[in-house]
Design a binder for these strands. Structure first.
Length: 165
DNA sequence: GCCAACGTTGGC
DNA sequence: GCCAACGTTGGC
């Protein structure tokens, strides 16, 4: 089970929007970076966890624990034509370019974990998340990094394993 | 508002 | 294929 960081600008879509969404679940789409796209398409699995991170706002911070409830799927599904009906001369259908996953809000953090707080933690000080110029909107977290963020959020460590109820 | 970092574009 | 210019992201 892997843990992923999902970055979002709360002025566009944040924790409050996810709370208000039907089933506290949303499609994580709109990612337009190939490296992040590859994570969505190839690496993020059903049941993986996510940490929701607010960026480009007054207090950038990790704010919630998520669960992936649907693995990667094309943003705009192309209607697959039955192979037998496709003339041999027709081009192969193109592979979709952009992908989404669905995430569900498991647990809003008791309090946000800010960047200064993360810098105090030995397991986060070298995290890609804290590096300047990091522009990846979806990125993998090591088990240590994920645990450190949950520790700083005062979330029960068991939450990351047992949250599915 | 500033600046660093990175991705994309386009001329050659 | 190189690389400069430009646009975007994102922290501060």
């Amino acid at each position: 089970m892997n843990v992923w960081l999902f970055k979002t600008e709360p002025s566009t879509f944040g924790l409050d929007d996810l709370r208000a969404a039907p089933g506290a679940t949303t499609s994580w789409d709109g990612v337009r970076n190939y490296q992040a796209r590859n994570f969505l398409r190839d690496r993020i699995a059903l049941g993986d966890r996510g940490i929701l991170y607010h960026s480009s706002c007054a207090v950038p911070a990790a704010v919630a624990l998520l669960e992936v409830v649907r693995a990667g799927y094309p943003e705009t599904p192309s209607l697959p034509s039955a192979p037998s009906r496709r003339p041999a001369s027709a081009p192969e259908p193109e592979r979709p370019v952009w992908y989404a996953v669905d995430v569900h809000l498991l647990l809003p953090f008791p309090h946000p974990v800010t960047r200064p707080a993360m810098r105090e933690h030995p397991d986060l000080i070298h995290s890609r998340l804290l590096q300047r110029g990091n522009r990846l909107s979806v990125l993998p977290l090591s088990a240590k990094e994920a645990q450190a963020i949950l520790d700083l959020a005062d979330v029960d460590p068991a939450a990351i394993r047992d949250a599915t109820k």
